[in-house]
Design a protein around this nucleic acid. Structure first.
Length: 911
DNA sequence: GCAAGGTC
């Protein structure tokens, strides 16, 4: 020790208990290391003396367990009906320490009070940096004099850790801010879309999932939806596949040495005539000449060191274990000390790793022990330094065995399998590749080229231990260049193209990895979420299909023209996060632009919700369940209820279009203000009334139907329901409120409430000027569009109403005002119980039935996107038309079957 | 009841 100054107390915090222990063990060199309990039973506190750049330190090393804080909306936005989901793009959010993290927080506070320095040993990635700032916030709140330092390390090895503590740096605020932005965007997008689509669809359809419909959550998330998108896209590709016939020429030759199968170098042809002509040329002159014999040494290389994704993919492929279960078992093996940390991107061992020692541990294993023995014998030549997979998370090594086991009593079959995979994979990584001798023989028959190949494995090497992989070997007879022979068989075979298979779990992980969806630690969660939400199913072969629900949701958004189910959104976010980390964009800037875009997208999705209805209607029956008052309604807070003084009053639109402002405390509080029946639109604004108390009373932007209000009133009116608004009061008196509802004559329409009855007055129809009904119920008017039209029940060209093909009520002609379909006319059913909808330009095809009546131009399942199958996946081969046996050629016409000629000379050819 | 990210 130099200087000899007074020792300072240094609080060191790692991301997880295992890292705290490693850091403490390495720094203390295991001498004078004391351990004591913290308030959390997982997060111990290690103590020892150390010296940082001449400064004597009393080191305290403890840990958190990942993030300390969660992001949530403020209380008044937490309930699903507390606000319009669109408000969640602006609703205030706050970070808080959840209940199960409070004990760690208290440990940090208690220790931080007594320390002078805080050294952050969080993982060296963006999330780690964000957690670092969570720790800083907690510690500096109780001790603002703390000196804050960051330790940067790329591996938990002595050299790195000692160097790191002597070269402490400052934490990187930009990294942490990138994560803050990601969290906020994920929360706002996820919560808004989840609430929106759940409330919109759950009660409107009979969704035959395994859970009670009322508890069903139709979640949306920027990772789960693209994952679902991969599954649906492949499913559509399969459905859209049109089998296409192709032809190929196959040739075989049997000699004393065995059989050789020659493949046509043209592969296969889709042109039948062309194939037949080439085939007949071969048959007429069937002698084969060997043009080339090539012999080559081929290597099959062992896999890269194992990271999380690869572990999940291989466990799925080899054992059909789900990625989620794999991670659970791996976690247990890790906790028990048998394998290294299982959540790692790294597939490259750092140069300091003692690989021999890891092999050494396995020597006594009854099955692979002898292989490990051979590996360590210098004379065997089996050893090879592992390859570099090119990924490094700078925090963890590749997954490898850390403790020998020949199997533990408490292990399940899956524990055995996974441990075996980790060990065999590691031993394979440090082994020589398999070596094979490959022979390729090329022949020419009448100018057509064919090739056959055979392989002899010379040295299996790593394949001896890696039993999960194989390398097929096949022997072919010896051929010499220039040699001639007559094929044993020469056949023209047909086959059909086949669609690609459904995505396997390994395929899905691959898609996610390539598109940057999720992290190595969360990808399996996203897959599991799709199963939990009934969006997808997995068959016994680990292949995923979308459920009707999953497909309908993706189809609905796809029909809106949005790629919300594509990975692009996440990629863009990832790009922005990187920009924040690098300082080229600010967190505020990214949040502003991203949320603005997403809000616009959300609002447009809301406007286009018919698309979701249509897509759902392809798969599900409409629900007969009475629709609750708050379903299908826009919900916006106007003011605090002055009756119960506990809940908010919100603007709502009932399904038959009437607006009201009612208390969320219903049914405990029944306070309601009915708005004029002549309203076509109403939206709560951010403007607050200056005269009504107690504030805030939000003003509402009203839009009235021109023909339903007297000419001296404006169609647009910014009004207040707090009692100050004379215009609103007058219009309620003139037009009445909600009176259109009982007049609709729908048996299931609820009776008007007391409040409604009390505000319904004698009315004068502004259309026909008669007393007793309002314009909305005027018998001489349909849907308020004109005062001269009469109701007809048969559709005619240019007609304004048609009978609903679903329920028999009338459908009114309306004009769309959405971004994607502005100006396009459609019919929608006027019955509040029915959501029938059809584009006017689809009317002809719509009369056949509901399924074809959707606005998607008859596009149902199966006709989506998809590439044509041509050449993608060759199917099985079929008929043999001509066979060549020895020297005798027998043949017949492909077209008519006559043995006297071939198809190119067939007299019936053009018949 | 909602997201995704850490981790036990």
């Amino acid at each position: 020790m130099s200087g000899g100054g007074r020792a300072i107390a240094v609080l060191n915090v790692a991301e997880k208990p295992s890292v705290a222990k490693s850091v403490a063990t390495i720094l203390s060199r295991n001498q004078g290391l004391r351990v004591r309990e913290g308030r959390s039973r997982y997060n111990k506190i290690f103590e020892f003396d150390y010296n940082i750049r001449g400064q004597p330190c009393r080191m305290l090393v403890t840990s958190v367990t990942g993030h300390m804080m969660e992001l949530e909306f403020e209380e008044r936005y937490r309930k699903w009906h507390s606000c319009d989901p669109a408000d969640l793009y602006r609703a205030p959010v706050r970070k808080f320490v959840p209940q199960d993290k409070l004990d760690i927080k208290r440990t940090l506070e208690e220790e931080a009070r007594r320390c002078q320095w805080l050294v952050l040993w969080l993982d060296c990635d963006r999330e780690g940096e964000n957690i670092a700032f969570e720790v800083i916030d907690i510690c500096t709140a109780v001790n603002h004099r703390l000196t804050i330092k960051r330790a940067r390390f790329s591996a938990l090895i002595e050299r790195e850790i000692h160097a790191s503590v002597q070269n402490l740096v400052n934490p990187n605020k930009r990294f942490a801010e990138a994560v803050d932005a990601r969290q906020e965007i994920d929360l706002r997008i996820g919560a808004s879309f989840t609430r929106f689509q759940t409330m919109l669809l759950r009660d409107a359809f009979v969704i035959d999932s395994a859970t009670d419909d009322r508890n069903l959550v139709l979640s949306y998330g920027p990772c789960q939806f693209p994952t679902l998108g991969f599954i649906v896209e492949r499913f559509w590709e399969i459905q859209a596949h049109e089998p296409e016939e192709f032809w190929t020429i196959n040739c075989s030759h049997r000699s004393e040495e065995g059989l050789a199968t020659f493949n046509w170098t043209r592969g296969h042809l889709f042109d039948y005539t062309c194939a037949v002509i080439l085939y007949e040329m071969c048959v007429e002159e069937p002698s084969a000449t060997v043009t080339k014999v090539r012999q080559q040494e081929k290597h099959k290389y062992p896999p890269h060191p194992l990271n999380t994704i690869e572990l999940e993919k291989r466990a799925s492929r080899y054992f059909r274990m789900s990625s989620e279960h794999t991670m659970k078992v791996a976690e247990e093996l890790y906790q028990a000390g048998f394998i290294s940390y299982p959540r790692t991107e790294t597939d490259n061992f750092s140069s300091g790793t003692n690989l021999h020692a890891i092999v050494q541990e396995q020597l006594e294993h009854p099955v692979w022990g002898p292989y490990a023995q051979r590996l360590l014998e210098p004379g065997s030549g089996l050893w090879r330094n592992p390859s570099n997979g090119g990924h490094d998370d700078k925090a963890h090594p590749p997954i490898h065995p850390t403790k020998f086991s020949a199997g533990e009593n408490n292990w399940s079959q899956d524990h055995h399998k996974l441990y075996e995979l980790v060990v065999r994979h590691f031993l394979a990584c440090v082994s020589q590749p398999a070596v094979g001798a490959e022979t390729t023989v090329e022949i020419d028959i009448a100018g057509e080229q064919f090739a056959a190949s055979g392989r002899v494995i010379i040295a299996k090497n790593y394949l001896d231990v890696y039993r999960f992989e194989s390398w097929g070997g096949s022997v072919i007879p010896t051929y010499l260049p220039g040699q001639q022979f007559v094929p044993t068989t020469l056949t023209l075979d047909s086959g059909v193209t086949r669609p690609p298979p459904l995505l396997s779990e390994a395929d899905l992980l691959n898609c996610m990895d390539k598109a940057g969806i999720g992290t190595d630690a969360t990808m399996h969660d996203h897959i599991k979420k799709l199963l939990d939400r009934f969006y997808a199913t997995k068959d016994h072969n680990t292949r995923f299909s979308p459920t009707n629900l999953g497909e309908a949701l993706v189809m609905g958004y796809d029909d809106m023209g949005y790629k919300l189910w594509k990975p692009n959104l996440r990629s863009m976010m990832e790009f922005d996060m990187r920009a924040v980390s690098e300082g080229s964009k600010s967190k505020a800037e990214v949040l502003e632009t991203c949320l603005q875009q997403m809000k616009a997208c959300f609002l447009d999705a809301k406007l286009n919700k018919e698309k979701l209805f249509e897509a759902m209607a392809v798969f599900f029956e409409r629900s007969n369940r009475p629709v609750r008052d708050d379903q299908h309604a826009t919900v916006e807070v106007v003011r605090l209820c002055q009756l119960c003084k506990q809940s908010n009053m919100v603007l709502k639109q009932s399904r038959d279009g009437n607006f009201m402002v009612s208390c969320l405390g219903y049914p405990l509080c029944r306070n309601v203000v009915w708005l004029p029946g002549s309203l076509s639109e109403a939206a709560v604004t951010t403007n607050v009334c200056q005269s009504c108390t107690p504030p805030p009373v939000h003003m509402i932007q009203f839009k009235f139907r021109r023909l339903e209000i007297p000419p001296n009133y404006n169609v647009d009116h910014l009004g207040c329901i707090g009692g100050c608004d004379d215009i609103l009061r007058q219009l309620i008196e003139i037009c009445g409120t909600g009176s259109r509802m009982p007049a609709r004559g729908q048996g299931s329409t609820p009776l008007p409430s007391a409040a409604q009855r009390s505000t319904t007055r004698t009315q004068v129809c502004t259309n026909c000027r008669q007393i007793g009904h309002s314009v909305g119920d005027c018998p001489s008017q349909v849907s308020g569009t004109s005062n001269s039209r009469t109701r007809r029940t048969t559709p005619q060209n240019g007609e304004t109403s048609i009978p609903c093909s679903t329920c028999g009520a009338l459908c009114a002609l309306r004009t769309a005002n959405t971004a994607t379909n502005r100006g396009r006319k459609f019919y929608s059913c006027q019955s509040p119980e029915c959501n029938f909808f059809v584009w006017e330009d689809n009317l002809d095809s719509a009369t056949g039935g509901r399924r074809n009546s959707s606005g998607t131009s008859g596009r149902g399942r199966g006709s989506h996107g998809g590439t044509r199958g041509r050449g993608s996946h060759a199917g099985s081969h079929g008929s043999t038309f001509v066979s060549v046996t020895g020297d005798a050629i027998t043949g017949r016409c492909y077209a008519c079957g006559d043995p006297s000629h071939f198809a190119n000379a067939c007299p019936n050819r053009n018949a």
